[in-house]
């Protein structure tokens, strides 16, 4: 009898666990919140990133970037190489405030919204793509497909959100809510860019994709970002994410 009870309890636990991750009633909003929670889980992140630009002839160019993030809405990125871009730094703050530091001019420039949809330092990421953000704050999700491994969400921008994308299709892992693929559509509803996140690993208790790629389908150009080194919860302060530190 005890064995039967144990089996029953084990079965119930497994069923409940499965429902937790693949709950039929799990709403699109909750899934997207799950995405935000898992991608912004660390208190702060400090990463060294190797960027590879690949053109349609498979010619490659390399860049190196240091990126720091605190919470979900503060991010600072600084180029280490190539030499022509060394020292260029980008700061993303809450409420769509972004700054760019150009060492050649010794000036920090506030980025106007028209710049946000231009390429970030020659990569296939735009300034909008690079900003620190919570998807659930800016996008309305709709669950359009699910299977054992993936939820597929369609995201449309909330009213008053400025974006160049009319919608995004996001594929999210059911086991940990990590987004693995995001298809970006322009205002004409044409698929223009696809971001793929690979090598998703758990490090120091946090899920992270150590290898992600943005492909510009029209330009036939790709940008790969490989995380070389990452530190979580190292105690970055708010002062790090200011113009003062941007210029250092």
């Amino acid at each position: 009898m005890k064995k039967v009870m144990l089996l029953l309890l084990t079965g119930m636990f497994l069923f409940w666990n499965n429902v937790q991750a693949q709950e039929p009633g799990l709403t699109a909003v909750k899934i997207l919140q799950g995405v935000d929670d898992v991608t912004n889980a660390p208190k702060d992140q400090n990463m060294s990133i190797k960027i590879t630009l690949i053109d349609k002839d498979n010619k490659e160019e390399l860049r190196e970037l240091v990126m720091m993030q605190k919470g979900y809405d503060k991010r600072l990125a600084k180029f280490i190489s190539p030499a022509s871009q060394k020292g260029i730094a980008f700061l993303s703050l809450p409420e769509d405030v972004m700054y760019l530091y150009l060492p050649a001019f010794k000036k920090t420039r506030r980025i106007a919204s028209h710049v946000k949809n231009t390429k970030f330092a020659g990569t296939d990421f735009t300034y909008e793509d690079m900003e620190a953000k919570m998807y659930s704050e800016k996008w309305i999700p709709e669950l359009i497909k699910k299977d054992d491994k993936l939820y597929t969400l369609q995201l449309t921008p909330k009213k008053d959100v400025k974006t160049d994308y009319s919608k995004m299709i996001m594929e999210v892992r059911t086991d940990n809510f990590y987004p693995v693929k995001i298809a970006h559509f322009d205002k004409g509803n044409t698929l223009v860019k696809v971001m793929i996140r690979e090598q998703i690993e758990k490090e120091n208790g946090y899920w992270i994709s150590k290898n992600y790629q943005m492909e510009d389908l029209k330009g036939k150009h790709k940008t790969k970002m490989m995380i070389q080194d990452v530190k979580f919860d190292s105690g970055l302060t708010d002062e790090t994410f200011t113009e003062r530190y941007l210029t250092r």
């Binding site: 420039r109 506030r110 106007a112 919204s113 028209h114 710049v115 400025k162």
Partner: peptide
């Protein structure tokens, strides 16, 4: 001053 009005940098 520097900023933006609508999408235009000023």
């Amino acid at each position: 001053f520097a900023g933006s009005v609508t999408d235009i940098g000023l």
